[in-house]
């Protein structure tokens, strides 16, 4: 089935088209979301939001890019939106604890959210440290690094998802690595 037939079937709301879409993309979308949010339950919730958004916005899809690219773009945006909301809640909790004269967040609490099921037990602590450092990167660097190093997407795929040239993606990747090294160095020197 060609992309255009598939899209028109989706636009017409044909159940078999949704079925096919989910068969093909549920694992990939879940994996992308998991790469950002690092928790199986949260990744499934975000992936569900992604498919609902695809269903809602399919009428607006003009076919400028591949369906897969469009879906990954939605997955990336939804994951970042989820993290923003989660961080806002965390900040609020932090202010509450400081105003209530309680002990501020220490490292253990800060990394306690890390629950990525793909990390072996012996790597969990390092994974938590790395994910925490990734969270502190500027958004574009974070997206490129996560999609490439955690989700395993190629530079070419990333150029399509973030809509940037290959050189921009490579440059963002380089800066992300450098920044991460710096952040990890600060963490380990403390």
């Amino acid at each position: 089935m060609t992309d255009s037939t598939f899209i028109s079937d989706l636009k017409e709301g044909k159940p078999f088209a949704y079925n096919q879409l989910l068969n093909e993309y549920q694992q990939k979308v879940f994996h992308t979301c998991l790469s950002f949010v690092a928790s199986k339950e949260d990744a499934e919730d975000v992936a569900q939001e992604v498919f609902l958004e695809v269903f809602k916005s399919i009428c607006k899809f003009k076919g400028d890019s591949k369906v897969s690219t469009w879906i990954y773009r939605i997955a990336t945006n939804k994951s970042l939106e989820f993290l923003r909301k989660k961080n806002a809640k965390k900040r609020f909790a932090f202010f509450s604890t400081t105003l209530g004269n309680e002990i501020p967040l220490d490292k253990t609490v800060y990394f306690s959210d890390f629950n990525h099921p793909g990390f072996l037990i012996e790597n969990k602590e390092k994974g938590a440290i790395l994910f925490s450092a990734i969270q502190q990167l500027p958004e574009q660097q974070r997206i490129v690094f996560t999609l490439h190093k955690v989700d395993g997407k190629s530079h070419h795929e990333i150029t399509e998802i973030v809509n940037k040239s290959l050189s921009s993606v490579e440059s963002l990747m380089h800066r992300a690595k450098k920044n991460l090294q710096e952040k990890l160095k600060n963490y380990y020197t403390e």
Binding site: Q26, Q27, F30, H31, L34, K40, E44, A47, H116, P117, G118, F119, L120, N123, K126, G127, L130, K149, V150
Partner: peptide, 10 residues
């Protein structure tokens, strides 16, 4: 550790 992430299924 990024090279040893195991595949997680939905």
């Amino acid at each position: 550790v990024l090279n040893s992430i195991e595949k997680t299924t939905v």
